[in-house]
Write a protein that binds this DNA or RNA. Structure first.
Lengths: 228, 228
DNA sequence: TAGGTTTACGACTGTGAGTCGATAACTAGT
DNA sequence: ACTAGTTATCGACTCACAGTCGTAAACCTA
């Protein structure tokens, strides 16, 4: 049975961890110390263990780079199976999308850093495509789900929330409309507090929070609805 | 190095192949002849080859059950990694969603048959969940993409198209609205032909076709749009 | 020719998003 | 204190599009 080595490819889990930092969408990357792609930046992840699910695996590997409890959302993105995606061996990868709420700054190891998704360094393997796929998934879901929950801190003003959406979507949007849309969907509620204005003055902003943080698709926006 | 047997799980590709048949959404299944789950129905698929992508793999395995050229659409659904999803060995599966246009009846082997997704027999492994995931993916995409292309034959009347949507979505919808929505999106165009009425009489129906069969998300329905 | 059936299409309604402008509530400078 | 500047909030208007209804068109059978 010495030759029982299966020809099945190895399997790894990867994660595109996104957070809005300094007004722009950033992704968590680490710098590879070994070949291949030595010195290039790569997505965190690692090989799938014998007795774990992919979701458990990505959480285990992410724990080496960031406090997993900071993750407000985690979902499967896609599975990459191009035989030559790794130059030396066959390696199938399942990518996940992770989100971290704005406003916190998780401790990361020295080989790990945040990079703006719109200004990325050279990435190892096919990780550039994976990052872009994660960004597009986030953008698509922002408009028809309440995934914005996962980008926002527990409490925020409309202006702050608007900044998060602008960073994630890549374009500006009206503050009036954002508030009304989210309030009418009954997703936002005022906490009663308000934020003191900055040095330039201005009316103090009301502080809001999301009503329920459970992530559900708001399917009321389906175009072809059932009658009645 | 005799112990170099990787503990990496085997990897298989599965497909949820859907078609509207006899006015209802049906899925292609085959009857297992061997344990485990002998006699139960299962999704078509098979193990990933050493030098192929998952997409090539599912097409290769599907070819044993149905003419792959009949497939109008194929996209990745999800990857299942529960360690105990197979009772005997570790087996990771990546599921695909495949669509076959209505109106054709592909040849299938004797162990293979179509089953209504709303009235399924006992399914092997976790295949029931996979079928339902495929159905939900289709339903979600019907409203904000033009994936309906892939369900329809090359030419059709509005009434026929409405029947396809009703079967796939599980609820009725207005013929007036369906036509106007699709025409306004500039997705439909009349062929000029018309279909003679049935025995009961009635005005002959105009025949339409989809303008371009390339499958693209019509993102004009994003809720939070860029200004301007 | 009358009655039934199916398709096609215009008109009306309702909802929600985009826009604009007015007002509220604050800071800083004179 | 008063004024100017700044930011937040809110109401009013417009627009696009989905949902509904009613009517006309075009065919069948008796």
């Amino acid at each position: 049975m010495a030759k029982s080595t299966t020809h099945t490819p190895e399997h790894e889990a990867l994660a595109v961890v996104l957070q809005v930092r300094k007004g722009e969408l950033q992704v968590l990357l680490w710098k590879r110390a070994r070949a291949p792609f030595e010195g290039a930046w790569a997505l965190p992840g690692g090989v799938l263990g014998a007795r774990e699910t992919l979701e458990a695996s990505i959480q285990r590997h992410l724990a080496a780079k960031v406090d997993v409890r900071e993750l407000s959302h985690l979902e499967q993105l896609e599975t990459l199976s191009e035989p030559r995606r790794h130059p030396e061996r066959r390696l199938v990868a399942t990518a996940y999308l992770g989100l971290v709420p704005a406003g916190i700054d998780p401790k990361v190891p020295s080989d790990t850093a945040w990079h703006p998704v719109d200004d990325l360094p050279d990435l190892a393997f096919d990780h550039l495509a994976v990052v872009l796929a994660g960004r597009e998934r986030l953008r698509a879901k922002l408009s028809y789900t309440n995934i914005g929950f996962a980008l926002a801190p527990p409490a925020f003003t409309i202006a702050e929330l608007r900044g998060l959406y602008r960073a994630a979507l890549g374009h500006d949007l009206s503050a009036t409309n954002l508030q009304r849309v989210l309030v009418r969907r009954a997703l936002l509620e005022p906490t009663g507090d308000q934020r003191p204005p900055g040095r330039a003055g201005g009316r103090p902003a009301a502080v809001y929070r999301f009503r329920n943080r459970s992530l559900a698709v708001t399917d009321q926006f389906a175009v072809l609805r059932p009658p009645g």
